[in-house]
Design a protein around this nucleic acid. Structure first.
Length: 893
RNA sequence: GGGCAAUUAGCUCAGCUGGUUAGAGCGCUACCCUCACAUGGUAGAGGUCACUGGUUCGAGUCCAGUAUUGCCCACCA
């Protein structure tokens, strides 16, 4: 019956079968079983509704799923809250693009119809990413799925806005903000991404009034001169003492503007004279305020020169820049331009160069919120993994600036502020007002702006649990346990969530923050659609399955280092799933007739063969290793430990060694024991692997259940995390046997001895006292060595005398009292062998030299710890023996 | 300008609190379609751990500096 498993693993059928079943049965919901105590909770970093699954998501969600599945199997109540983000600007852009294709635009539609259009778009496409997350195997509790604009979360946004306003932490004001001339909206400082660009520093003459002299200013943005209302020098700059208090004529505009003195001006940069444009530069703005300079805005919301720009009106800012320089040049006022590399802000959504723009916006005062957020990181109440991010976080928090939260777009949470046409006062309330709070006038209008997307995301860890209602979920699941995300949104999101949590919930939102690297292509570039270097995770899943994808991606994650991917890398994952599959097939073939309640092995050391003891010992080790790795978020370590055990220990050695036992009928009892152990190890192995590779483990495990007479859980998802502790007496026999086998195989390979040629191997006890032990070796391991190394005779012989064609094996460093010989007869190639042995001898003598030097070093012997010295002495003894052996072997050739 | 990472086999990377004969996967070479798997097996080659100093009995591992690369932050126009 179980042999229906096909020869190669087909991920697609398997994966499509299990996920719907898990979900339907409600296994992703918080389930109480086993351990009491604090539940383990993760909130998903909500992907944009516009999103489609990319490798970054795959990595991010694979990690979360591993943590959740692992904790769930440990009997802890787990919750993984999924959801999506309305992604204000990004989504609006997408829908606008769609409209444009239909030759429509949002202004034609009007606000209400446009918003409706976006909602419709969301209905249609918004579940794409959510469906794709399922394909990955993500075990989120979908019954709790949230959206940053759903009713509850909108309630939360409203609540926190009003609360902040009432606490005096939200204010409205005219300031220079980052403006995207393409999206037509203000951006926060974080949303303006600085990129180093090669620009130019333009040197321009401004005539001094009533004089033939000039002052020379240097600027990177000549077009802003149209709005200049002053020229500034440093008060202590002797070079310019003579122009203090003078007036200059602004070229092109012929405006008279004063020379002011301000400490801000650096004497070293440019000419030491700065043109002051208060409406288009944040430093100039502050300077302007200090000196009461007018603020003249010369651009409109699209970055086009407006009516204040005189003859340049209607020109795009960059066209104007060019024209202005030309015109200045004609007038002899342009001196030169010098190459200048500087960081220029770009819109994080559309990559347009942002314009510092003077406008009325809403802001959140951040300093008061940051205070506690700093403390919790310093006291490690919130811990960052890798730790180095703590510093980055603290640095940002300590230099935090106010957060511009108003956006001039339509898709988002409209700002809950109403202006009264009559008394001009503001109404800010939790429920939509019908009249002015102050004068009861009905002539009120809501603020047209919406809030920054992140103003809803920063509430995510508690808004998704029901806040501001006092729900059961909130009580039970807040604070959450681990946040898994990428460092790119450390400031945007993580830092702000910590502030919001402390402000609204009076408690941290999560205990651990695990920051993983960015997914890049093999040349180190970020994967992006525009670069055309993406590897589509869905395509990979289609081809080789989510398990293989997860395994590969996760094995490359090392402590926050970036992940470099190429398509070729996924082959390894496919091969590994296939290996597991075939190991299982083999196991099932050999469990024929086995049916026992052996899930719990109750066998003491002396009842099992050494090989069985050995694999159980290795299993204990790997279960410990995986546990430790996951505890420390060292996912690649967990992967490697499992791969090494499954492929190396289990498949390459254990299964191969047990073939004689399983095939042969000589020892029925040993065969039964081995079946028991095989069942046990396979079961444990699958459970250890399940968090990383959920589908294949479930598939095999369901088959395995057929062999158990004991009740096993319905799904491996809810099986227990194996806690395996075998402590058999360490045996030197297994490693020695492995060495003998390897060495014999080596001789065979190097001398081209055909596999049909059965070899003769002799163990020679070095003294009579070891005879019994040698006999044990040959008896215990005879069948193994014979099968795995194609040995015909494997015997022990006291006083064995080597003849022509016999070679001393260089191996069993763990067996001091024996020598092992193999007869390669006619196949011997003396020169080849000599060469190899000489090389080996050379190496060993080098090591011995080093060991001797160390041990004869007085300070080493005096200062090094005892066990290190003993180890070194042991090493020296081994080396001496080895060298002796090598020398004899060479001499006897 | 400030900060952070990285630099170990041809490639991609492990190497966590200093003590091994420095590891893995891929690739490479040779042999093997052996009754789980050729998406496989066996064996093998391949490294003066970027450089220079220092601390130490002992450094791939700690410290300082140099170089190269990448990332983040920053209002000097």
């Amino acid at each position: 019956m179980p042999n229906e498993l096909s020869k190669t693993y087909s991920a697609k059928d398997v994966e499509e079968r299990w996920y719907p079943l898990w979900e339907k049965k409600g296994y992703f919901k918080p389930l109480k079983r086993g351990k009491k105590g604090k539940p383990y909770v993760i909130v998903i970093p909500p992907p944009n509704v516009t999103g489609i699954l990319h490798m970054g998501h795959a990595l991010n969600n694979a990690i979360q799923d591993i943590l959740i599945r692992w904790q769930r199997m440990k009997g802890i109540e787990t919750l993984w809250v999924p959801g999506t983000d309305h992604a204000g600007i990004a989504t609006q852009n997408v829908v606008e693009k769609k409209l444009a294709q239909q030759k429509r635009d949002r202004h034609q539609l009007g606000r209400e119809a446009f918003v409706k259009e976006v909602w419709q778009w969301r209905e249609e496409y918004g579940s794409t990413i959510v469906r794709q997350l399922r394909k990955l195997g993500s075990s989120c509790d979908w019954s709790r799925e949230r959206f940053t604009m759903d009713e509850g979360l909108s309630r939360a946004v409203r609540e926190v806005f009003v609360k902040l306003y009432e606490d005096g932490l939200i204010y409205q004001g005219n300031y220079i903000i980052n403006w995207c001339p393409r999206c037509h909206t203000a951006l926060s400082d974080e949303e303006a991404e600085h990129q180093e660009l090669e620009g130019a520093l333009y040197y321009i003459r401004y005539p001094i009034k009533g004089s033939k002299e000039f002052v020379v200013v240097a600027t990177t943005r000549p077009e802003t001169m149209l709005g200049d209302t002053g020229v500034a020098i440093n008060p202590s700059d002797q070079r310019y003492a003579h122009i203090q208090g003078k007036t200059v004529i602004l070229p092109l505009m012929q405006r008279e503007i004063p020379v002011i003195e301000d400490e801000y001006v650096s004497k070293e940069f440019g000419t030491g004279i700065v043109k002051v444009t208060p409406a288009h530069d944040s430093n100039d703005f502050e300077m302007g305020r200090r000196h009461n300079l007018p603020e003249i805005c010369v651009m409109d919301e699209s970055g086009v020169i407006n009516e204040n720009g005189g003859q340049y009106r209607g020109m795009d800012r960059f066209a104007a820049r060019k024209k202005i320089i030309e015109d200045l040049d004609k007038q002899g006022l342009f001196i030169e331009q010098k190459k200048h590399i500087h960081a220029v802000g770009h819109c994080y959504r559309c990559n347009t160069i942002v314009e510092p723009y003077y406008s009325k916006q809403w802001f959140v005062k951040m300093k008061p919120l940051a205070k506690k957020a700093i403390a919790v990181a310093e006291k490690e109440k919130v811990k960052f993994f890798p730790e180095r991010w703590t510093k980055v976080y603290l640095n940002w928090m300590n230099n935090i600036r106010d957060w511009c939260i108003s956006r001039q777009i339509w898709w988002g949470h409209q700002i809950p502020v109403w202006y009264c046409d009559d008394c001009k006062k503001l109404t800010v309330t939790r429920d939509d007002p019908t009249e002015c709070q102050h004068c009861k006038s009905k002539n009120i209008r809501q603020d047209q702006d919406v809030l920054d997307t992140w103003f809803s995301s920063w509430l995510w860890p508690f808004s998704t649990l029901g806040w501001p209602e006092k729900t059961e979920d909130l009580k039970k699941f807040y604070p959450t346990s681990t946040l898994v995300t990428a460092p790119e949104i450390l400031f945007f999101w993580v830092a702000r969530m910590i502030m919001a949590g402390l402000y609204c919930m009076k408690d941290i939102p999560f205990e651990d923050v695990y920051l993983h690297g960015t997914v890049r292509d093999e040349t180190g570039r970020k994967m992006s659609k525009s670069l055309g270097n993406i590897i589509d995770p869905l395509e990979i899943i289609e081809e080789i399955g989510a398990d293989a994808l997860r395994f590969v991606v996760i094995s490359l994650v090392s402590q926050g280092q970036d992940v470099y991917l190429s398509k070729q890398r996924f082959e390894g994952g496919r091969n590994f799933t296939n290996k597991i599959w075939n190991a299982a097939r083999f196991a099932f073939m050999n469990l024929e007739g086995f049916k026992e309640g052996s899930a719990k092995l109750k066998i003491s050391a002396n009842e099992l063969s050494l090989v069985n003891q050995w694999i159980l010992q290795e299993l204990s080790k790997v279960s410990r290793d995986v546990e430790n790795a996951l505890l420390k978020y060292r996912f690649n370590d967990a992967c490697h430990a499992l791969q090494r055990f499954i492929w190396g220990d289990f498949c390459d050695w254990y299964l191969e060694l047990q073939k004689p036992v399983l095939y042969g009928n000589e020892n029925e009892e040993q065969r039964k024991d081995t079946q028991k152990v095989l069942f046990f190890v396979l079961d444990a192995m699958l459970r250890l692997l399940h968090p990383i590779m959920p589908f294949i483990t479930e598939e095999i495990w369901q088959q395995l259940k057929n062999y158990s007479t004991e009740e096993m859980p319905e799904t491996i998802m809810n099986a227990n995390w194996p806690d395996i502790k075998f402590n058999f007496q360490e045996s030197t026999f297994i490693p020695a046997m492995k060495e003998i086998i390897t060495e014999v195989r080596d001789k065979r390979a190097r001398f081209n001895i055909p596999s049909k040629e059965a070899l003769h191997v002799v163990i020679k006890p070095l003294d009579a006292g070891c005879v019994t032990q040698a006999r044990m070796l040959t008896e215990l391991f005879g069948s193994y060595v014979k099968k795995l190394a194609h040995v015909g005779v494997f015997e022990d012989r006291l006083g064995f005398k080597k003849e022509k064609g016999w070679l001393l094996l260089n191996v069993p460093s763990t067996l001091h009292d024996f020598e092992v010989y193999v007869d390669v007869g006619e196949f011997i190639d003396v020169d080849k062998e000599k060469e190899k042995l000489a090389k080996e001898l050379d190496k060993m003598e080098g090591f011995l030299e080093a060991a001797k030097k160390k041990l004869s070093n007085k300070s080493f012997v005096e200062r090094a710890p005892r066990e290190i010295i003993e180890k070194e002495e042991g090493k020296q003894r081994d080396l001496i023996i080895k060298i002796e052996n090598l020398k004899t072997a060479i001499a006897e050739l």
